[in-house]
């Protein structure tokens, strides 16, 4: 088994809520991320899914050090980047790059494409000597499927899909080992989404990249990921391989989430069992005690209010080797098939 190149342990990010202007005092905290642990192995894709406000984007920002964690550790090849600063941090950051969601706001409209993609070289000049940069940028454009002659154009001259390719080229500029992609295709049209997903997969093989792929679209996450983590209110509810999560989910939240995804097959209307959750996601500033999902869960009992379920292989499946035996943070984890198997065509 390949070694983990990124180890995340008990990652916490609380945003303080303050009151008063002169004498600010903290009256609470938004618990955006509240104890998240996972490993990323070399060459694999870890998908993180969840609804808005579950903390998946905050995790992404902490991985690339745009946000400092409140506590917890992020180790890249054994080095904890939450403790690094200055030159050592800069060296590590070169290897972890990010692709953003919105290709319209993540590219500076006043910079040419060449300057945008070449900007990482200004910060890490050791990667490309000055005279060599233009050629490198043109190579990158070619790699992501854009015409290398476009270096002097501006972002507004490109479509959404092409802009996302520019964002990806910028992420690749420093030859990182890890790319954190936060909703990289959700702003794109369906026919263009497939192009970008295929590009990301091709680049992974070509440059042996590891991806942390964050999205709310469960179908795309299944398509691209080797392992999947489902997040709810700042914690991981369930994690496993794509088959374990999609075909053998044991956490009620995962089951509800999967059953709610519309399947592009009108024949599945009758074959599907839908779990319609009531209510909305509670506020992360005031999450429920115990299991945070209990307010919307049909299995909730007193035990769920009293005790936080830990992310571990549930007792019922311990010692088993089947696909249901994977970490799930539920006191009453049980297997339930919610995605109807595709019809043989």
């Amino acid at each position: 088994m390949p070694e983990a190149i990124l180890e995340v342990r008990d990652l916490v990010k609380h945003f303080p809520l303050t009151q008063g202007i002169l004498f600010k005092k903290q009256i609470g905290a938004v618990k955006a991320v509240d104890g998240v642990s996972f490993d990323l192995k070399a060459g694999e894709t870890l998908g993180i899914v969840g609804e808005s406000g579950c903390g998946k984007s905050t995790v992404a920002k902490m991985l690339v050090n745009l946000e400092r964690p409140t506590s917890g550790a992020i180790s890249y090849k054994g080095e904890d980047l939450t403790r690094l600063s200055g030159r050592a941090l800069k060296a590590v950051r070169r290897n972890i790059q990010m692709v953003f969601q919105d290709p319209y706001t993540s590219l500076n409209p006043r910079m040419t494409v060449g300057d945008i993609i070449g900007e990482p070289y200004e910060i890490h000049p050791e990667v490309a000597p000055k005279g060599d940069r233009r050629r490198k940028v043109q190579d990158l454009l070619d790699v992501v499927g854009l015409n290398p002659e476009y270096v002097n154009r501006y972002p507004h001259q490109f479509s959404g899909g092409q802009r996302q390719r520019i964002g990806i080229a910028r992420g690749l500029a420093l030859r990182p080992e890890i790319i954190v992609a936060d909703e990289p295709v959700s702003a794109l049209d369906v026919s263009v989404q497939a192009q970008v997903v295929n590009l990301l997969e091709r680049l992974q093989d070509e440059f042996s990249l590891s991806y942390v792929f964050i999205a709310h679209d469960l179908s795309i996450v299944r398509h691209i990921s080797d392992r999947v983590a489902v997040m709810y209110l700042g914690r991981i509810a369930e994690t496993g391989t794509d088959t374990q999560i999609y075909d053998h989910p044991t956490h009620p939240y995962t089951q509800a989430l999967l059953s709610a995804v519309p399947v592009p097959d009108p024949g599945a209307r009758e074959r599907r069992e839908r779990i319609i959750l009531t209510g909305d996601v509670p506020s992360p500033a005031n999450p429920p005690s115990g299991c945070t999902f209990r307010t919307r869960c049909w299995k909730a009992q007193q035990h769920c209010t009293d005790e936080v379920p830990l992310l571990a292989v549930p007792e019922a499946f311990r010692g088993q080797t089947g696909p249901a035996a994977h970490p799930s943070a539920c006191h009453f984890a049980a297997e339930r098939q919610v995605v109807p198997p595709a019809e043989e065509s």
Binding site: S191, V192, A194, Q195, V197, I220, V263
Partner: peptide, 22 residues
């Protein structure tokens, strides 16, 4: 369009992509 969307109920091969732009 139908071929280019990933499916929840199966892990597909490479996605079909409509070439070009609208």
């Amino acid at each position: 369009l139908l071929d280019s969307i990933p499916r929840l109920d199966q892990k597909g091969q490479e996605l079909y992509a409509i070439k070009g732009l609208p």
